[in-house]
Design a protein around this nucleic acid. Structure first.
Length: 426
RNA sequence: GGAGGGUUAGCCUAAUUGGUAAGGCAGCGGUCUUGAAAACCGCCGGGCUUACGCCCUUGGGGGUUCGAGUCCCUCACCCUCCGCCA
């Protein structure tokens, strides 16, 4: 959520920056409601002052046994006016609030201006695409050939966009989760958490998925709960409605969760395989920082995610999203894209963002500055470190050999009983 | 699922029949001190205001009342007991 005070004082700057996302998102309407609200509040406050003052007098008179009927009559009128005005204020505030909840974050001034993904900017590239002396197979064929992914039976259970991992496939899934969590906790300083996989709707408002993106989520029918589409939701909301101490910042969390996504509006796109599914595993990185250090923390968070790919030996690049491709809550985002030999292109495997105080304002997460002073909103960040399913796609495709077997990256072998190669069974 | 008890500011704790949130700790600033502690003074939930001051704030929402921490309804969470359960 944007700061209403900032909008009031810098309306042109806000509009200009929002326009780089393609719209002004009703900022003029916001300003109109804000002014109306302030005028109404002024009026009710002076009436409330009168009511409080006279009510105290009435109390005094009653104590002294003196009559107060005239004043009480007067105050009945005043109370009625207050009620009418308060209702109007409430309606005004509700309208204003729901407008504000649907306005995306302001892009950071560094973010390249552009209309869509084609205008994202490559920041750096690591490694080289592997060379094959044969035509590389795509992951679906490899998974089925090796009998480690069973898409057919998965769809018997749950329909399209699900997977059934099997044998070395299931082991690889589990190995990757453990490898990533171990790396981030023991070398990058993150604290491991294991959150609930379904949460109340207000946590989704806190991180920005609700109210605007309801159609992306799975809702629990029995209760007002949703399945998490990313660990960002439960983990960022750990500190909702809290005031942290500056001394404990930055707070770094890493969490494994499954992620559940409706993928509405992507019918017909990548219907097969592990790339776009309704349920996938992900290890997430989440940070709470001061405003002064959040952009440094974004760089280190991104490099923490990159380290996973480096150790696996996968070729990738980092791109800075342009304004038109930026997610709703983000001020700045780096996507990490891994090389996909079968398609000769890069595929998003991590998205690392600084939300500045956008989520903190929605979720009311503050910190008390060192040496006292008023609480300020923290800055929140998160990034995938990494999406496990897509990492499996990359491993299968990049480390395949001509006979269809797949070399297991060395760093994963301790997590896979020393297995060096996934081979076709007799 | 059933019964009962609770939620007051960062933390802890008060508030006669309803009369407008009292105090302590922690923290910050100051006096004093070689320095520190102690003691003393001030600040110490949010908003508006140049200022004086005003409004809001007792888990959330609603109601009764001139006036609600206090009475009523409702929701959430915590604790205890019973039932059920991996």
């Amino acid at each position: 959520m944007l700061d209403i005070k900032y909008i009031r004082e810098n309306p042109e700057d806000v509009k200009k920056r929002l326009l780089t996302r393609g719209d002004t998102f009703g900022i003029d309407k916001v300003r109109e409601l804000d002014e109306k609200r302030r005028a109404l509040i002024k009026e009710t406050e002076s009436l409330k002052e009168e009511r409080n003052r006279v009510s105290r007098e009435i109390g005094k008179l009653k104590k002294e046994g003196k009559p107060a009927e005239t004043l009480i009559k007067q105050m009945q009128q005043v109370a009625a006016r207050i009620k009418r005005l308060d209702d109007e204020v409430a309606r005004c505030e509700e309208a204003l609030h729901s407008l504000l909840l649907e306005i995306p974050n302001l892009p950071h001034p560094d973010v390249p201006v552009g209309k869509d993904a084609t205008e994202n900017v490559v920041v750096r590239t690591h490694g080289e695409p592997p060379e094959f002396g044969f035509t590389p197979r795509e992951h679906v064929a490899l998974g089925e050939m090796l009998d480690i992914i069973d898409f057919e039976r998965a769809s018997k259970l749950s329909g399209a966009r699900f997977s059934l991992m099997k044998r070395e496939g299931a082991l690889l899934e589990r190995a990757l989760i453990n490898f990533m969590l171990d790396l981030h906790t023991s070398e990058h300083g993150y604290t491991e958490v294991f959150p609930p996989f379904m949460t109340r709707s207000d946590t989704f408002v806190g991180t920005g998925q609700l109210p605007k993106f309801k159609e992306d989520l799975f809702k629990i029918e029995a209760m007002e709960y949703y399945l998490v589409p990313t660990a960002e939701v439960p983990v960022t909301n750990i500190h909702r409605e809290e005031i942290l101490r500056e001394e404990e910042l930055p707070i770094l969390y890493t969490a494994y969760t499954p992620c559940f996504r409706r993928e509405a509006g992507s019918y017909g796109k990548e219907t097969k395989g592990l790339i776009r599914v309704h349920q996938f595993n992900k290890v997430e990185l989440v940070k709470f920082t001061t405003p002064e250090s959040s952009y440094e923390e974004l760089e280190s968070l991104t490099s923490n995610a990159e380290e996973v790919l480096k150790r696996l030996g996968l070729h990738y690049r980092v791109v800075a999203l342009c304004t038109g491709d930026l997610g709703f809550s983000a001020a700045k985002t780096y996507d990490i894209e891994v090389w996909l030999p079968s398609q000769g292109r890069y595929m998003e495997i991590s998205s690392c963002s600084n939300f500045e105080d956008f989520q903190a304002r929605r979720a009311n997460i503050k910190y008390r500055p060192k040496g006292g002073g008023k609480p300020r909103f923290v800055h929140t960040l998160n990034g995938s470190g990494l999406a496990v399913g897509r990492t499996i796609v990359a491993i299968l495709e990049n480390f395949q050999t001509e006979d269809g077997s797949v070399i297991v990256p060395e760093v994963l072998r301790p997590y896979m009983r020393g297995l060096e190669k996934i081979e076709k069974k007799g």
